[in-house]
Simulated scan of single mutants.
Amino acid sequence: MAKETRATRALSKAGIAFTVHLYDYDPAAAHIGLQAAEALGEPPERVFKTLMTLVDGKPACAIVPASSEVAMKKFAAALSAKSAAMMKPANAERLSGYKVGGISPFGQMKPIRAVIDESALAQPHIYLNGGQRGLQLCLAPDQAIAALGATVAAITA
């Protein structure tokens, strides 16, 4: 597995400090984010999943702890929108340039709006997918927010 991806290049180019963590990705896992947290030996509230969505028909990323679900109404409201829905996996892969299970919010094909759940701010560091299945990036929450130009809001159910 390569340790350099579009995500790592984007963070490096932005001058954001991060560490790379590899783990054995289990494609049969019921909850990929929870499997990643367990494999990394980290609490699930510190490992965040990137979910590709459509908000009023436009793409956006919801970034929430692996142990949580997105509250779509709260998510839409965070972007001053009326509705939000999950994007079909094939569309998420095409738009992001990453495979499902390895979608990173960093280094996507085109920059899109992102909202990080406010619970990230309570963590000393968070893990986000690095653009490959089995590759996580660890960084300070404020650095992730800055790198993405993300909105911070309560978006979990």
Rank of each mutant, 00 (worst) to 15 (best):
residue 97 G to V: 06
residue 78 A to S: 12
residue 118 E to W: 10
residue 148 L to H: 09
residue 45 E to D: 14
residue 35 Q to F: 03
residue 155 I to H: 09
residue 84 A to F: 00
residue 17 A to S: 15
residue 97 G to C: 03
residue 41 G to D: 02
residue 27 P to S: 11
residue 144 A to G: 06
residue 116 I to G: 01
residue 40 L to I: 10
residue 153 A to L: 08
residue 153 A to C: 09
residue 60 A to C: 06
residue 71 A to R: 14
residue 6 R to N: 14
residue 35 Q to N: 10
residue 53 T to K: 09
residue 30 A to H: 12
residue 117 D to Y: 06
residue 88 K to N: 14
residue 95 L to P: 04
residue 152 V to R: 03
residue 145 I to K: 02
residue 45 E to Y: 09
residue 92 A to Y: 05
residue 65 P to W: 05
residue 93 E to W: 10
residue 106 F to G: 02
residue 109 M to S: 15
residue 123 Q to T: 09
residue 149 G to N: 05
residue 25 Y to M: 02
residue 13 K to H: 14
residue 107 G to I: 04
residue 58 K to T: 13
residue 124 P to L: 00
residue 151 T to R: 01
residue 19 T to P: 11
residue 68 S to T: 14
residue 62 A to N: 06
residue 44 P to Q: 12
residue 131 G to V: 02
residue 115 V to Q: 00
residue 113 R to Q: 15
residue 108 Q to T: 07
residue 30 A to K: 11
residue 147 A to E: 00
residue 85 A to E: 12
residue 8 T to E: 03
residue 86 M to C: 05
residue 33 G to V: 02
residue 24 D to F: 06
residue 70 V to Y: 04
residue 57 G to R: 04
residue 3 K to I: 15
residue 54 L to V: 06
residue 56 D to P: 05
residue 138 C to K: 12
residue 144 A to F: 05
residue 88 K to A: 14
residue 110 K to F: 12
residue 18 F to A: 13
residue 37 A to W: 03
residue 82 K to F: 10
residue 67 S to H: 13
residue 121 L to E: 01
